[in-house]
Design a protein around this nucleic acid. Structure first.
Lengths: 141, 141
DNA sequence: CCTTGACCTTCCCATGATGGCAACCCCATC
DNA sequence: GATGGGGTTGCCATCATGGGAAGGTCAAGG
């Protein structure tokens, strides 16, 4: 059996330490987002401080809404000491734009619905501007 | 061969008329969201005015961000002449709340990213508060 | 009448990111 | 040495959608 010191974590420990589930760690590895983990003689994945740090980076980027594809690019930039900060900024700004677009789309849905909801009595009668609005396509700005 | 008048549409025509792709019409049917289409003798799906209207209803509801499960309930309410408008209103309001939650989550991501982007020079040097922020977990409110 | 092209049919696969389950292996502890 | 907890792989499911293959059908035109 391999010797495991306090610095070398199993996947479960790395999951707890990084905030990424063991399942997702394996998945990230399988799709090449992160380097394959080192293994013990008995085929267990092992994670050192650097590997855990990388996983935490991924978790935070996910938390900011970056797609895995974008995170791949972010990781490359992170590990590239010769990177230009302009490249990072461009990636971040394009993601902000995407977030804005999605926010705007949902805000528009919300506005339309609120418009309809405001007109609905919400009682026990069948009369309903919401249903009518959806059926007729009115009420959509 | 069956006789097809101008009122009876093929799936492609119904798709064009409703804004739902033929692919999705078949899918909606397969999962029971809409009633199975009538068929010609040669097994082609046919759509009359009412069926197309239903598809348009689905398209509009999707456009408002309702999930298919919610649309199923909306369709039932739409077709139920004894419905209480309160039920429709509750469904709409719960969807508004969900939209709000998703908007808030994305707005928070956007704010964090904007905060980081503002601090990034965006030049050809590697120094980058964005990358550092993601790596360190700072900059997240 | 037969070809051609457009359209229909079903079935399978893929997406993105994640969870669940099954079968099996390994390690530490009692 | 048994036991329990956690590792390994692999497959399936989600949600809504698109793509494509293989084969049947229809309408128009030579």
């Amino acid at each position: 059996m391999a010797i495991r010191t306090a610095e070398i974590l199993t996947i479960g420990e790395a999951a707890a330490a990084s905030g990424v589930s063991a399942k997702m760690i394996r998945y990230y590895e399988s799709v090449g987002l992160v380097r394959p983990a080192t293994r013990t003689e008995s085929n267990y994945r092992t994670y050192d401080g650097k590997a855990v740090e990388t996983l935490r980076f991924v978790a935070r980027a996910r938390h900011l809404g970056f797609s895995m594809e974008e995170i791949g690019r972010l990781l490359a930039l992170w590990q590239d000491r010769g990177r230009a900060s302009a490249d990072v900024k461009a990636l971040a700004m394009s993601h902000i734009a995407e977030l804005e677009a999605r926010i705007a789309a949902m805000a528009s849905m919300k506005a339309t619905l609120e418009h309809l909801v405001d007109r609905c009595h919400g009682d026990d009668r069948p009369d309903c501007p919401i249903i009518d609005g959806i059926a007729a396509g009115n009420g959509c700005h």
